[in-house]
Nucleic acid binder design. Sequence first.
DNA 1: TGTAACCGACAGGTTGTCGGTCATAGAATG
DNA 2: CATTCTATGACCGACAACCTGTCGGTTACA
Lengths: 207, 207
Amino acid sequence: MRIVKEAEERKNEILDVAGKLFGEKGYDATSTNDILKKIGIARGTLYYHFKSKEDILDALIERMTDSLMAKAREIAGKKDVPVLQRLTLMMVALNVDNNLGHEIMEQVHKPQNALMHQKMQDRLLAGVTPIVTSLIEEGIAQGICQTDYPAEVVEMTLLYSNTVFDDLAGYSGDARQRKVVAFVYNLERLLRMERDSLREVILPIFG
Amino acid sequence: MRIVKEAEERKNEILDVAGKLFGEKGYDATSTNDILKKIGIARGTLYYHFKSKEDILDALIERMTDSLMAKAREIAGKKDVPVLQRLTLMMVALNVDNNLGHEIMEQVHKPQNALMHQKMQDRLLAGVTPIVTSLIEEGIAQGICQTDYPAEVVEMTLLYSNTVFDDLAGYSGDARQRKVVAFVYNLERLLRMERDSLREVILPIFG
DNA sequence: TGTAACCGACAGGTTGTCGGTCATAGAATG
DNA sequence: CATTCTATGACCGACAACCTGTCGGTTACA
């Protein structure tokens, strides 16, 4: 007996399985056959819902980044919470959801998954940068920090943390700690903040 | 009549053609058939010299980065030239050879070539960072700049310029100019240098 | 009953393997 | 010194085993 489902439901079912497999074996190493066999659908069904394998990846990334950005926007919008605290919340959200929450991230930084990593980075940078930038601009208005180029500072910072902290697991405990401390140190300089003023805000995030 | 060549010569011949094709069509879109037909060798010959398509890519990247790093080391080693001037030469070398010289770079930043981009970035960052860091440390010793984390500053800076300036062509003239100015501004802050002290050094590089 | 969702065979392409062939440097021989 | 022999490094191309995307036909259900 052939099982029929609403298009939206099937699509999500495909994305769920694809996401899991991409996370386990990488995008390139996962074949469309792997996906459709695991779900129990035919080849034609998969291509009825998505026009190509890359289309699946794009939809998957969109689904992930959309929910992440919604959360980021929500945090940034809490005007009653102090700026620095919102910044902390933001970094927690980005790090947990981005690097740990989904197991996809465990494999995403190895060269094999370059395409996936690249696409996520592009989308996240484009989407999150303006949100975080607005936060920084609030901070500037309140005299907490200062820079002539908030957007570029944010861009540089996000890019760096997204690349380096991705495979931070590869470092030993000490080297890891040093990286994080250096990151805080540099960020303080970029934003012309007092030495160690961000230390207590950011350090706890990375343990 | 079958043509026989020294292994090293054939290898380089293969890398030459592969590099050209990867640059024109991207890594994924180039098949091993494209390569071997263009050279005029059989399938078996290609796989006699390289164990896989990815192996070709790796060898190609190694050949490129090796020559680039040799040049970087040479520049850094000219102890009679002032540090700032050496820094300029270094950036020129990295930018020209990396982004313009080889036409490979023209296509390298589009998502299709993510694997190529990723591998080059990994290798370049790992290789060039210590060289540039030593340069910065010289500058610190001479009192030209100051930071507690020179390696991380360099890492952050190289990563950023390698990612953002890659597809700088996508921006209009004004936005491009702004990016570069912001980059200099941020670098001065990271290295605790006087405002605009790097301006004349770096700006000319990007026109 | 019309159509959205589904099926699976198939075409055309890809990578990597493998048993076998040929060219040639250098050893052996006259 | 000239010639023949031979071991092996370089080369060949058919082939297996995959892969993605298409398409005409089928089925469930609103």
